[in-house]
Amino acid sequence: MTDTGHYPQQVMIDAYGNHGFRFADMSHRGSLLCLPTGMFAWDVTTAAEITLEALAPVLAVADQIDVLFIGLGKDIAAIDPAIRTAFRERSVIIEAIATGGALRTYNVLMAEHRAVAAALIAVDTAR
Rank of each mutant, 00 (worst) to 15 (best):
G5T: 03
I79L: 06
A122N: 01
D14A: 11
T125F: 03
V58N: 08
L103N: 03
Q64G: 08
T37M: 05
I94K: 07
V92L: 12
D14C: 06
A78F: 05
P81A: 15
D66E: 14
A56C: 02
A98Q: 03
A119E: 01
G101D: 04
H19L: 10
V58R: 14
E89D: 08
R29G: 02
D25C: 04
A115E: 13
R29H: 10
R90W: 14
I83P: 03
L120Q: 12
I93R: 12
V44S: 13
L109E: 06
I83W: 02
S31E: 10
T2S: 08
P81G: 04
M110G: 08
I50A: 02
V108C: 03
T105Y: 07
H28V: 04
V11R: 02
A41I: 09
R29C: 03
G20N: 09
A117Q: 10
H28A: 06
N18I: 10
P81W: 12
S31D: 07
V123G: 05
A111I: 07
Y7N: 04
W42A: 07
G100F: 03
V61Y: 11
E112G: 04
L52K: 00
W42R: 06
D3G: 15
P81V: 11
T2P: 02
R29I: 14
I97L: 11
G73Q: 07
A111S: 14
L33D: 07
A41R: 06
H6Q: 03
Y16T: 02
Y16R: 01
N18T: 11
D124M: 11
M26C: 10
G71C: 07
F23D: 09
E95D: 13
N18K: 12
C34E: 10
A41P: 02
L109G: 11
L120V: 09
T99H: 02
L32M: 15
T46Y: 13
I76M: 08
I93F: 10
I76W: 12
I76L: 04
T105I: 02
R127P: 15
D124R: 14
L120P: 08
N18M: 14
A115L: 15
H113C: 15
L59N: 00
I65K: 09
A62S: 06
V61K: 03
T2Y: 06
I121S: 02
D43Y: 03
I97M: 15
